[in-house]
Simulated assay, not measured.
Amino acid sequence: MIYFDNAATTAPYPEVLQTYQEVASKLMGNPSSLHDLGVQAKRLLEASRQQVASLLGKSAEEIFFTSGGTESDNWAIKGLAFEKAVYGKHLIVSAIEHPAVKESAKWLQAQGFDVDLAPVTKHGFVDLEALENLLRPDTILVSVMAVNNEIGAIQPIKAIAQLLENRPTIAFHVDAVQAIGKLPIADILPQRVDFASFSSHKFHGVRGVGFLYKKQGKKISPLLTGGGQEANLRSTTENLPGIAATAKALRLTLEQVDQPAQMQELRDYLLEELASFPDVTVFSGRENFAPNIVTFGLKGLRGEVLVHALEEEGIYVSTTSACSSKAGKPAGTLLAMGFPLDLAQTAVRVSFDGENQLSQVEAFVGAFKQIYQQTRKVRV
């Protein structure tokens, strides 16, 4: 089996699974309980929070554990909107955001908020001039992802941070789900970023866990109320085994300092090989693109057809994002970049991990060559 769908989810590190199992089996106390088992659980919870914060160069009071990237995005967008509604109801999100952000913004429109989509260039980067022109006195939030999940375009987070530097009334949210282990933390979280979303299973943690970074002093309304956990901002009994495993996964991932270069080597090799096929359109690039993602399309062949053809060869890729591919939707990023629908529907995404090898990419190219030839007649 060759697994090239790491942008959808990564395999947990063995050490991460061991941590999860040990905490789940040996530390059954509820962190809110008063007895000793509860005290031990609370101690581990806060130690995990401190470790995550230290790895990001932040304080423990700025880390709030959630169920994953989708909840973190929803909380950041909706919670911020309701918290600041008295100051304005205008939000800006980029046209290529994950559905967790775009659908949250769409939902807020139905609640009376005003939402603008910041356009992107033909290469998939947020148009800074257009974004600046969208800013209004009543703008309360700008949300732009760090790394686009469909084509891997690295968004100009530092430039946007600079654009918002003298606009303190506008909160800046970054969806950083695809960025850990691919970009330096300083590029993901410059000082001007107020909120950022993370998901454990994207960096070899377990599913169902994530966290939201909230800059100290910034306010946000809770979406979940009840027991008062997470500083009374996110009520529900904490997933302690998953949280401890997340802290371990983040540390192990950030220690792999050579992996981005290794993934980039695989990416560049695949890009060179794909350039030799006349009927292939490559949507991803090299400069200012994540080192692990290559998205391309084969003219005349829908993406899901190619996905299943590769699957028969034991190679696993996806159309674009896992959420969109399951729903049968074309890559929204490609449509926002100006590609026609028929071409956007051909897109498949190959996403590497540090454990992938060049021999696997060579096997992928060999399998693709066969499929390319076998489908030539039906693609005409």
Rank of each mutant, 00 (worst) to 15 (best):
E313W: 12
G303Q: 02
H308R: 07
I371W: 03
R49E: 01
T319D: 03
L212S: 00
I315G: 10
G217D: 11
R251C: 11
Q51F: 02
S199G: 12
V93W: 02
V350K: 13
S221R: 15
A327Q: 15
I2H: 13
D258W: 12
T19M: 13
V280F: 04
K158M: 03
S54E: 15
P241V: 11
G29E: 09
T237R: 15
E287V: 09
G38N: 06
A249W: 04
Q191H: 05
T319H: 12
I170R: 11
A244L: 10
Q51M: 09
A367R: 00
V39S: 05
V120L: 03
N133V: 07
V206F: 10
K158C: 12
E22T: 03
V294H: 07
A331D: 07
L27V: 14
R192S: 11
E238D: 10
G314S: 14
E238T: 14
A130D: 08
T319N: 14
D194K: 05
T70N: 05
Q259W: 08
C323Q: 10
Q370N: 11
F364D: 06
L44Q: 09
L310P: 01
G314I: 09
K122S: 07
G112P: 07
I151R: 00
A336S: 13
F211P: 02
Q259D: 15
H98E: 06
R192H: 10
V115I: 06
G112D: 03
L128F: 05
S72L: 06
I315R: 14
E230V: 06
R286N: 02
N356I: 00
R376D: 14
T281H: 07
F203M: 07
R136L: 01
E304I: 09
A275Y: 14
F339R: 03
V23R: 03
G210M: 03
K89Y: 10
Q216L: 02
R302C: 00
F283W: 03
V257G: 06
I92V: 13
L271Y: 13
E273N: 06
A322E: 08
K377R: 12
S67G: 03
R302A: 09
S318N: 01
T10R: 11
Q40H: 10
G68C: 08
I96D: 03
A100Q: 05
I180E: 01
L17P: 07
W75I: 04
P222F: 01
D5H: 09
L135Q: 08
K299E: 11
V147E: 09
H201D: 14
